[in-house]
Amino acid sequence: MKGFVQKIKQKFSKSKNLSLVMGAQYERQNYGQPLDRSQSSQFPGRDVETYFRPSSLPIKNTLFTDHHFFDPYYDKDVNEMKLPATLTRTAEGTVLAYLSVLREAENLTPSQMGGCGTVGMAKLPYPIAYQFFTKDYHKNVSYQEYLQSFRGIGHLNVIKLNRLPDENEVVSYFIELETIEGSSKGLTYFAYYYGKIQLKKVHSHYKIDQMKLYGEDFLCAPYHLWQHDAEAVVEVMYGNWCQLIKKKLPTTQEGYVKTIVFIGTDGAEYRLIFYQLTNDTDVLISQFRKHSKGNFETIHIDPYDCVKKR
């Protein structure tokens, strides 16, 4: 059996290499250079993005797919790189530009390989992306530490991007990332992350000051957790634990945004906003309570504190 499998692998490897050679020759003969994702119109009716992702959500980080943006940065050290001022004039512009740079980056390793040649712009985008951070971030995270955080990742798409309520003049965005990662098995796989990017205004420009990401598990919730479901979270944590729910209204959902409203035992109206991740887990994003003037104000209730007080 082992010998048979080895023969199959050798046969597949030969046919794969032949296909790659023929494909490269076809590209050179017909287009003079390898296919650029920004030139998908060369194949009418063909969406090149279908080769990169299974998700149907539109990609957000698509600013630099023609690769000309990277031309001035070749052969420059990380400390010599400067960003165009136009990229950081708005908070959302900074986030989109930063994530668009990272979309073209790869940090595959000998133990986590993928692709059949050069992937994207290789590691060139990483020192450029590092320039989107504040000086305080640079003090806390060196460039090498930053680079290592992408170990094994070969491609990155942003599929969710939403601004969170501002707090004390701090601007934050929720993001969900869809990555293609290498492996030691001769295949690549999709992995998903979600988290928050926090920005700070520095001399009329927005720089990234903090960032925290969490990996998504596709096995935990369906087997063990009720915490993945927004309705269960509200009923258990805010109802049973905090004894705060008098009447719960029907859940509403638009796309991946779930809104749950309930009337509290204190007579106030509460509104909880959840985002639904790719693995179907609902993540609590914001909590609001309607004050006496009829407007909603941001609040922070930790249901675990309710348990501690019992």
Rank of each mutant, 00 (worst) to 15 (best):
E80G: 12
F190D: 08
E181D: 11
T90W: 01
Y194W: 15
T94I: 12
G114H: 13
K135M: 03
T88V: 06
C116V: 03
M121A: 06
L96Y: 08
G114Y: 04
Q148L: 06
G115A: 08
A129K: 07
Y189Q: 08
Y74E: 14
G120P: 14
S184L: 14
R163F: 02
V119F: 02
L161E: 03
I159P: 07
H138F: 09
G186A: 15
Y194I: 13
G182C: 07
R151P: 07
G117K: 00
T90Y: 00
L96P: 09
A97N: 10
F133K: 13
L108H: 07
R151Q: 11
K82A: 07
G120R: 11
G152P: 12
F190P: 05
R163T: 06
K201Y: 03
P165D: 07
I208L: 10
Y192N: 15
T88N: 00
C116D: 02
S142M: 03
T188R: 12
E80S: 13
V78F: 04
F150Y: 09
K82Y: 04
Y98S: 05
E178T: 14
K76N: 06
G154W: 09
I180T: 12
L147P: 12
L164I: 13
K135G: 12
N107D: 02
R89N: 03
Y189R: 11
D75R: 03
Y192T: 15
Y192Q: 14
E169I: 10
G152Y: 13
I153L: 04
R103Q: 10
E181F: 08
G115V: 02
Y194R: 13
Q198F: 10
Y194G: 14
L199D: 06
L164E: 10
G120K: 06
R89L: 00
N168E: 13
N140V: 13
K207C: 01
L96K: 05
M113L: 06
A122T: 00
Y193H: 08
V119M: 00
Y126M: 05
L87D: 15
V158C: 03
L124E: 11
P110F: 02
F133L: 06
Y194M: 14
C116K: 01
I175V: 11
G120S: 09
E178N: 07
G115M: 04
